[in-house]
């Protein structure tokens, strides 16, 4: 352990008395030292994990600064908190690791990121159904006959009583309105 700056004791004792500037000075001076000690103790830990440990340590120091005895050096006090809180954090991470999958090394478009295989298809279908529901009765009927049931124009005329030309126009307009509805849905998102 490196030689401790004698100011650290003075700063922490002053922080116990409510001196905010001394406390800020101590925390700023201690942070790089703590970061170095954390990296030395857990060389395999990621940068994010080290930062989490440091933040836990600083929070624990803040909540327990009344436990510090100014007659003793500050570094063993800080390092003790780092060891205990760092070990707690690593235990928690280890416990949760079995239920987690690391995604850092996976490409962003991998299907592993999907909750289930038909998720995208289901989302598209839900959007289409919503757009269809927003159309008028006549449009829905025309699209249902010609696009979903895929009847011929002749068969559709028998069901609707419309002429072939009128059906063609109605079909074209229904598709245009459906496109608009889908576009509107996409804009809303």
């Amino acid at each position: 352990m490196t030689e401790e700056d004698p100011n650290w004791r003075i700063w922490l004792a002053a922080a116990q008395a409510g001196d905010q500037r001394a406390y800020a000075a101590l925390l700023a001076a201690a942070l790089p030292w703590l970061r170095r000690r954390a990296r030395g103790r857990w060389p395999g830990a990621s940068t994010a994990d080290i930062e989490d440990m440091l933040q836990e340590t600083l929070l624990a120091l803040h909540q327990n600064r009344h436990l510090y005895d100014p007659a003793r050096p500050v570094q063993p006090f800080l390092f003790g908190i780092l060891k205990l809180r760092g070990a707690d954090l690593r235990r928690r991470r280890h416990r949760h690791a079995g239920r987690e999958t690391a995604l850092e090394d996976l490409p962003a478009d991998t299907s592993a990121l999907m909750t289930h295989g038909t998720q995208e298809h289901d989302a598209e279908q839900a959007g289409l159904q919503k757009a269809l529901a927003s159309l008028g009765e006549r449009d829905r009927q025309v699209l249902g006959l010609l696009k979903i049931r895929q009847l011929s124009l002749k068969e559709a005329t028998a069901e609707t009583g419309m002429s072939v030309a009128a059906l063609k126009v109605a079909s074209f307009r229904a598709v245009q309105r459906l496109k608009q509805a889908l576009k509107g849905g996409a804009d809303e998102d």
Binding site: Q16, Q20, A24, L59
Partner: peptide
């Protein structure tokens, strides 16, 4: 972490030493 330090320092109320 630097932001956390600033927030903690602002919140340094006096404490009774144990």
């Amino acid at each position: 972490t630097e932001d956390l330090i600033a927030r903690l320092a602002r919140d340094a109320a006096p404490v009774r030493r144990l």
